[in-house]
Nucleic acid binder design. Structure first.
Lengths: 109, 109
DNA sequence: ACAATACATCAGTATATACTGATACAATGA
DNA sequence: TCATTGTATCAGTATATACTGATGTATTGT
């Protein structure tokens, strides 16, 4: 029996949360809640630059949060797991109650 | 009807996730799943420095993820909302399936 | 083959933020 | 009151990482 949680899994969990902790990546994932989209559709929906989107998609894909499928010269992306959406939904719910505090927290920007 | 999600709420949601996106803060929250603890108990359980813990507790408290209660010269901290635990649990579950990808993702460290 | 389109990669810059060590503040007991 | 203990704050340093702009690669149509 361990007195402290496994340090490795803590570090991994933190890394997983960092996948969700950026506005651009969240915008991408929010956009993908409406279903599969090509990169250019995501670019249009989010108004972010193509290289930025591509970088973040690579990150999300590496982390296993989204999945990609080539379709001709397009690549379609989708959320890879229902729990990704659940996590987004749960965070949104929690944010309903803690929004003011989060907004005013000076330790994070 | 908006074509894109509210930018403000996206930014806030990202900020909320950043609250979970650090190993020290996760260690603190994991520790607090066992119940209320004083700062020094958290320091002992996590093996992190006192000032570091205090800084992170201030962050978590500002964000509304933990709540504090003075008790003599001690301050007891606890998770402020059941959804904080739910988020931790859901992330852990998801991590069960995406751990390898997250571990190998070079975009995040 | 060539041009056009879709996407990926990379280097460089700027910012965010975690951590340490020193110090301040608060509460208690002698 | 003074010393001790518990907690908070702060400046400075080091690192992580988001973003841009340029360029590379892949796919398709002519």
């Amino acid at each position: 029996m361990l007195l402290t949680a496994n340090p490795t899994s803590i570090a991994l969990q933190a890394k997983l949360f960092r996948g969700f902790a950026d506005p651009s990546r969240l915008s991408i994932m929010e956009t993908l809640r409406d279903g599969e989209m090509t990169v250019s559709e995501i670019v249009e929906a989010t108004q972010l630059s193509q290289s930025n989107i591509s970088n973040h998609l690579a990150c999300l894909r590496d982390c296993g949060l989204v999945a990609a499928e080539q379709d001709g010269r397009y690549v379609r992306y989708r959320l890879s797991d229902p729990r990704v959406e659940q996590l987004l939904a749960l965070a949104d719910e929690l944010l309903g109650d803690v929004a003011r505090g989060v907004y005013e927290c000076v330790h994070l920007k």
